Computed example of a mutant assay.
Amino acid sequence: MTVQDLAEAIEVNPKTVERWITQGKVPYRRHQYATASVLKVEVTTLWEDSRMVDSATDLSKAEIVTVYPHRHMVPTGLWREIYGRATSHIDVLVYSGLWLSEDPLFHDLLKTKTQGNAQVRILLGDPDCAAVKQRGIDEGHQIMDGKIRNALMNYRPLFQSHPDIGFRLHDATLYNSLFRADDEMLVNTHVYGIGAYMAPVLHLRRLPGGGLFDTYANSIEQTWGGARQVTEHDLTGA
């Protein structure tokens, strides 16, 4: 692996990596863990840093790539970028995620990923369940069920043409919308009184031994396990 390869993998400037190597500079803790993860070695193999506390708390902090104060401030291409890097797991856990269902490039990406044997799962809220009704009230409107039905209509061509894409409806109370791509995840928090587009988003990258990413990933698994299959009736109302 070259300096350029490592820099791109952990999202730092190549000159920064060069300073670690040639000048003995000690990276920030999150970069230490990220580098060790990419190189598949223990952090202590690379750095004996007295400032480094090898604990679950430090690892979990290191899993946070960045935090955006509002979803609309997330770079437009980041959603497709992290899903584009995925090779094994693509998950979307939302109530409606209408904005994503309206993106034709996202649809094309999902088609490509299923051809590469990635597991693709889309979890939407059951438009008739109590949790969906309450979320609409919490956001200051009562149209969440309609947004979900619109998203289902948008996904109908994928549902019919690509049976390998898993579609399910859940009745869970969500405290976050989760967008997982292998070991990366965007966590869109839910805040009472505002829509999700105004709420903060955490960009996470899983590190061995860290617990933050896995906590959210386990939430996806539990919700998927309790959700029901989408039917043609859900898509058409007929």
Results as ranks from 00 to 15, higher is better:
E184R: 08
V3T: 14
V41P: 03
M198C: 04
S96V: 11
E11V: 14
T22K: 15
G226E: 13
A118Y: 05
E18V: 09
A62Q: 04
F179I: 10
Q142W: 00
A56C: 00
L93F: 07
Y83S: 13
E81H: 13
K113P: 06
A9M: 05
L100W: 06
G97L: 10
K111G: 14
D138M: 04
S55T: 14
S96P: 02
V74E: 07
I10R: 07
L110G: 06
D183M: 03
E232G: 09
W79C: 04
A130G: 00
K25S: 14
G140T: 08
D54S: 07
P14F: 07
V38E: 09
H190N: 11
S88I: 08
A36K: 09
C129L: 01
M185K: 05
I10F: 09
M1W: 00
H89W: 04
L105S: 06
I64C: 00
Y197I: 09
R80E: 13
D103V: 06
T215V: 00
V67W: 00
F179A: 10
K25A: 15
T189D: 01
G116H: 10
M52R: 13
F167A: 05
D182V: 07
L202H: 05
R180S: 11
D214C: 02
T66M: 01
H31N: 15
A34E: 05
D5H: 10
K40P: 02
V187P: 02
R156N: 05
D214G: 04
V3L: 15
D171E: 11
L124T: 09
K113L: 09
G210F: 01
G97F: 06
V43S: 12
L207K: 13
A196G: 12
S96G: 08
V191H: 00
V191C: 07
M73K: 07
D126C: 03
P200V: 11
D171I: 00
H170I: 03
N150R: 14
Y95N: 02
H203N: 12
R30H: 13
S219K: 13
L124Y: 10
V12C: 07
Q32P: 11
V94Q: 01
T236Q: 05
L152I: 06
N218D: 15
A130F: 03
